[in-house]
Design a protein around this nucleic acid. Sequence first.
DNA 1: CGAACGCATAAGGAATGACTTATATATAGG
DNA 2: CCTATATATAAGTCATTCCTTATGCGTTCG
Lengths: 112, 112
Amino acid sequence: MDDSEVFRALAHPTRRAVLTLLADGEKTVSQLHAGFDISQPAMSQHLAALRAAGLVAERREGRNAYYRAEPAGMAPLMQFVEQYLEQHVERYREHWPKQLTRLKGVLARMDQ
Amino acid sequence: MDDSEVFRALAHPTRRAVLTLLADGEKTVSQLHAGFDISQPAMSQHLAALRAAGLVAERREGRNAYYRAEPAGMAPLMQFVEQYLEQHVERYREHWPKQLTRLKGVLARMDQ
DNA sequence: CGAACGCATAAGGAATGACTTATATATAGG
DNA sequence: CCTATATATAAGTCATTCCTTATGCGTTCG
């Protein structure tokens, strides 16, 4: 049950924010670091955590390290969400029509 | 950014398992405790964490405490998943056609 | 070559997490 | 009433997380 590593990696706001920043392509450690009020080593450590969880991958080029999002790493989270939605169908529909509509919208757009 | 509380709550395998057990209706603390190899206080503490995150709710009846899943608490997680899927459309479709198919299946079934 | 840059790793400390045992509180039942 | 049951809280311990500063290591460039 080391799906937990993904959840733990996502539990820190800085790491979730990093994933958001990586949405539009790879970035170096300094570029990522620039957006946060933490030391450079702290950023390196967050990236190491994301990497260990399989959520990002790294590419070296000269003295730069380019990090990119690794969607495959989200598998455990996606699986959990699917299972949860499936198990809580009725109650979820009752409480979250808007959420479901949005999610379906996302999936529909991904189909084109 | 205290969406983090939900992620932190889900980071422990016991707590995720508890949510699964609650899928088919409310259960008492003892019933939940029976399924795990931890002390009763430990289970109470896990339930307190889930409750603080908004993922479960409690109902008292006599000397029993019935816990039930609270789908509304999943909002921050669902929002994150939506955002991530949206942002990583192309790469995600490339790497996770099966995952997406399953997720769409779940949503379709929820529509009936 | 030597200095500056980009990044990772090491080391240490404060805060938080996850358990334990012991105990408190409330209700139920003989 | 008195005891047992169901649960929560308290208190203590050990592990983990998240930061810091210091340093190491390869790369670029003057």
